[in-house]
């Protein structure tokens, strides 16, 4: 057998296991989403009728989807900026040569061990309206529709601290020491050095982090289900929460269109990441 053919056959064998999973659970469902979006099912899921693209415009322009998108977008703005600032604060504080610094670094990284569910139960302890330690703080009260999302967001900010800290610290440590020395010799004080030298140098790392955290925020589900179950008055129903709760046969079409809406959002964010990464590769070389 010629070498080339042999290589190709081996490649097929090696790629097949992954390909089967990707086709069955990534590409086929994507096709199914579009299909479901074009149809309406009866209450028992026993019959469906074609309703066409009108379902897309109805759902994507309808209150339910737009409310979910609005909640999810607010969730992004509540979790990402605060999370990044706190992560930078922790990383800058822990990026120095001190006895015992490893201990502090491990503590700051430790929330990475927490799952969304664990973080949610932990914040249940803190902000549950009846038994939470901070139950009287109105700024992030879970019982007020205007503030409940802030409370849920706090759990995500805390949970993501570990990851943010680890990534920012790695970014800081990749900056050569000589650059700081040069800046100091040039008469830069600590603040000017941070804003004019450090921040620009770790900006690619921060952009990467923003993308990851934005995607996490758009996938928020467990924290909502455990802390508020979407309430009060539906004020914390994120997109994924709505998608998850439209699995009854008669709402499958609507849920499918919402999922495609979520896909579009994820795609935009991922493409942004790709473009940023592309640019960074050029920086590096």
């Amino acid at each position: 057998m010629p070498r080339k053919l042999k290589d190709s056959l081996l490649a097929v064998a090696l790629l097949l296991p992954s390909a089967i999973i990707f086709v069955s659970f990534f590409f086929y469902p994507l096709y199914r989403l579009f299909y479901l979006g074009l149809h309406q099912q009866n209450r028992f899921g026993t019959a469906e009728k074609y309703v066409g693209w009108s379902q897309y415009s109805d759902v994507l322009g309808g209150d339910d989807f737009l409310d979910g998108l609005w909640v999810s977008t607010r969730y992004v703005f509540l979790t990402v900026p605060l999370g990044i600032v706190l992560g930078i604060l922790l990383a800058v504080a822990a990026n120095r040569h001190l006895r015992g610094i490893k201990f502090f670094q491990t503590v700051f990284a430790s929330t990475v061990a927490s799952s969304v569910a664990v973080a949610s139960v932990i914040f249940f302890v803190l902000i549950n309206p009846q038994v939470g330690y901070f139950r009287d703080v109105t700024f992030f009260s879970l019982s007020d529709p205007d503030t409940a999302l802030r409370g849920v967001a706090l759990s995500s900010v805390w949970q993501n601290l570990g990851l943010t800290f680890i990534i920012v610290l790695a970014g800081l440590q990749a900056v050569p020491e000589e650059i700081y020395e040069a800046a100091t010799l040039d008469g830069y004080g600590p603040f000017r050095r941070f804003f004019r030298v450090t921040l620009p140098l770790i900006s690619p790392t921060l952009l990467f982090l923003v993308v990851v955290l934005v995607i996490f925020a758009f996938q928020a589900f467990a924290q909502v289900e455990i802390l508020t179950n979407g309430g009060p008055a539906g004020s914390t129903e994120t997109l994924v929460f709505k998608i998850f709760n439209s699995q009854q046969p008669q709402s499958l079409g609507v849920g499918a269109v919402m999922a495609i809406g979520l896909f579009a959002v994820t795609l935009v964010v991922s493409l942004a990441q790709f473009l940023i990464l592309e640019r960074r590769v050029h920086y590096g070389s």
């Binding site: 659970f25 990534f26 086929y28 469902p29 994507l30 199914r32 989403l33 479901l36 995607i215 996938q219 589900f221 994924v240 998608i243 998850f244 439209s246 699995q247 499958l252 849920g255 499918a256 999922a259 495609i260 979520l262 896909f263 994820t266 795609l267 991922s270």
Partner: peptide, 10 residues
């Protein structure tokens, strides 16, 4: 680009 949240229903 296809997180499980997107493909959940199908």
């Amino acid at each position: 680009m296809l997180p499980i949240e997107v493909t959940l229903i199908p």
